[in-house]
Design a protein around this nucleic acid. Structure first.
Lengths: 230, 230
DNA sequence: ACAAAAGTGTTAAGAATACACCCATGT
DNA sequence: ACATGGGTGTATTCTTAACACTTTTGT
């Protein structure tokens, strides 16, 4: 408790930070965007991009600033953003206890940029991470679990796929996120019954085999499924 | 941006608050604990119990303090506590923007106490609330939805029922939370297949009719269901 | 004996799972 | 002509949903 010289109560808030778990599918793997810390604590270690939330900024504004500064990715380029959880966390500064609001962002095209301010931003497969700064391994696991369940009751994968994609792309996306294989015929049958995607007239040709139909999502925004999936 | 007289950056965090949505089943209705605000803004209006989170306190410590002070309920008496969401919210003080971490607490026996510090704490049915202070109606709806889905894939109802209860009690709890009726035979069959509850040797006698078997939950802690419910 | 809630089973429809072959293409 | 991934259907099992009567008790 802090009191000023008139003995009235002075409220001092804790440090507030935001951290973003930015996920992208690369090489049929779910990957997470990390930066290499420039300062103590954990100098040189990999960490989630994040930063202080100062008075006057909302948490998403603070996230926007942290992402832009440290990774060169604009929040507008994030295809689906969702708040994850707020952690009471070990402080990143000497003032002790801090509180961190975390977000998960799904991304299709956005790529990090190298600049004066960015901190070596790179994507890493979520399944093979070394020890990160703070409790960030834990936060990433939490995000991964949230995403796993989210794709079973919503169309959230749209935010990880290009506008047009094949059913194989779609299935591989599910398999990468869920971490196990799915039956091709059952997957296609069920997904097509859900009325989330429509076939286009276009085809995807690649390699010495039959070309695949390209599909697109009916809506590029979150929809809930009538029957949940998997 | 604030700078001190050496022109180095001074970090000033936003106001941080916590609010609790404390839910209890009373008269086969889901009810929420509210307090009547003693001060501006919203003086006299009903609101969720909450308060400032000062530096050095975790969010649950701040919640504990706010609940104890304003409702006389000890956090230890809460049978299941879960963080809900962190809202960027209109400030409750003149310093502008604030951030509020919200929790949902499920309770079986805990009752509010009247004292010098408590603010007329009372339970109100969640389905018939007047306009509350801040965005609290919205927060309560959010909590209600979370609870609705939570009871379909976990044993979370245990935290709203007495240790021993009848299958009718259990069904009424589900109906009160979900807001619609369930088929008696299907409910009982399915619930008993889930291996969450065990019959005791005791009976519940009340009124001029056949007595009911009393059951208890196998675990008084959160378990996930093998097959989800409803 | 009557009123009131407890307790109990079957059938039909829908959903999930397991599983193997032909098709269209590039080289 | 062959290698490669694209595309398709059926049978079985499990799950859900709909539905009505008998039992036990207190008064």
């Amino acid at each position: 408790m802090l009191y000023n010289n008139l003995m009235t109560f002075v409220y001092v808030p804790p440090t507030l930070t935001v951290d973003g778990v930015i996920l992208k599918l690369i090489d049929d793997q779910l990957q997470v965007l990390l930066v290499q810390r420039a300062d103590e604590p954990f100098k040189g270690k990999w960490a989630l991009p994040g930063g202080y939330n100062a008075q006057g900024s909302t948490t998403t504004e603070a996230l926007d600033r942290a992402l832009a500064t440290k990774t060169g990715i604009d929040l507008k380029k994030i295809d689906l953003l969702e708040q994850l959880y707020t952690f009471d966390t070990v402080a990143r500064d000497p003032r002790g206890h801090a509180v961190s609001v975390t977000y998960m962002g799904l991304v299709t095209k956005a790529a990090p940029k190298v600049s004066k301010t960015t901190q070596n931003p790179q994507f890493f497969p979520v399944d093979q991470l070394l020890a990160l700064a703070y409790d960030h391994n834990h936060i990433i696991e939490y995000a991964h679990e949230r995403l796993q369940s989210k794709i079973t009751y919503t169309n959230a994968v749209y935010a990880l796929l290009p506008t047009k994609f094949t059913l194989t792309h779609l299935q591989k996306a599910y398999e990468a996120i869920l971490g196990h294989e799915l039956d091709k015929r059952n997957f296609r049958k069920k997904f097509q019954e859900l009325d989330l995607i429509t076939a286009t007239n276009e085809q995807f040709r690649e390699g010495a085999h039959r070309p695949a139909k390209l599909y697109k999502f009916n809506k590029q925004s979150l929809e809930f499924l009538s029957r949940s999936f998997d």
